[in-house]
């Protein structure tokens, strides 16, 4: 199992930060997922052996955290917040808009593998609602028009 140099450096340093190896698990999983796209069986067994855990233990942890996934996702994960603050300012309309525009539902992925759509809980942008996170980037004070621009932006980025 091959990870990037950057990942290896971060991992090597991170495990020295804790009295127990396994403490590095959660952030390590997220960085691994960012590289591979999802947490494949291969990644799981690799990290399990590195942190002296059973694969079961690793899966138990993965399945707990909502950002971690064992299934492939689109290039861009469009996470629309519909929690109270965003809901009051049109979060749900935004979600439906994306759903129509992309032709996919919650946790669906476009056939071209470009976008995955996800309805998510509060992402800490309440005062700038409604807000969307595409992968790790925040887009705030959105309207359906602005949302279109955002999506088109990513589509361009994804295709070139």
């Amino acid at each position: 199992m091959k990870f990037s140099e950057e990942f290896e450096q971060r991992f090597a340093e991170m495990v020295t930060h804790y009295p127990t190896k396994r403490s590095a698990l959660v952030p390590t999983l997220l960085y691994a997922q960012d590289e591979v796209g999802f947490l494949s069986d291969e990644v799981i067994s690799e990290l399990a052996s590195r942190l002296a855990l059973t694969e079961l233990e690793v899966r138990n942890v993965i399945s707990y955290y909502s950002m971690l996934t064992t299934k492939p996702r689109g290039k861009f994960n469009v996470q629309v917040c519909t929690n109270i603050a965003c809901m009051l300012r049109g979060g749900e309309e935004l979600l439906h808009h994306c759903s129509k525009k992309l032709g996919i539902g919650h946790k669906g992925t476009t056939p071209d593998g470009m976008f995955t759509l996800e309805e998510v809980e509060c992402i800490g942008a309440c005062s700038w609602a409604p807000a969307v996170q595409v992968n790790y980037d925040f887009h705030e004070n959105l309207t359906t028009e602005k949302m279109d621009k955002v999506l088109d932006e990513y589509k361009k980025r994804g295709t070139q």
């Binding site: 804790y18 127990t20 396994r22 403490s23 590095a24 698990l25 959660v26 952030p27 999983l29 997220l30 942190l51 942890v61 707990y64 955290y65 909502s66 950002m67 971690l68 809980e121």
Partner: peptide, 19 residues
């Protein structure tokens, strides 16, 4: 973290930090 509100609860936070 990796997405979990409950992990904000102090004792769950420690569990999460312990992997």
């Amino acid at each position: 973290g990796a997405g979990a509100y409950e992990v904000g609860e102090e004792s769950a936070l420690m569990e999460s930090l312990e992997g």
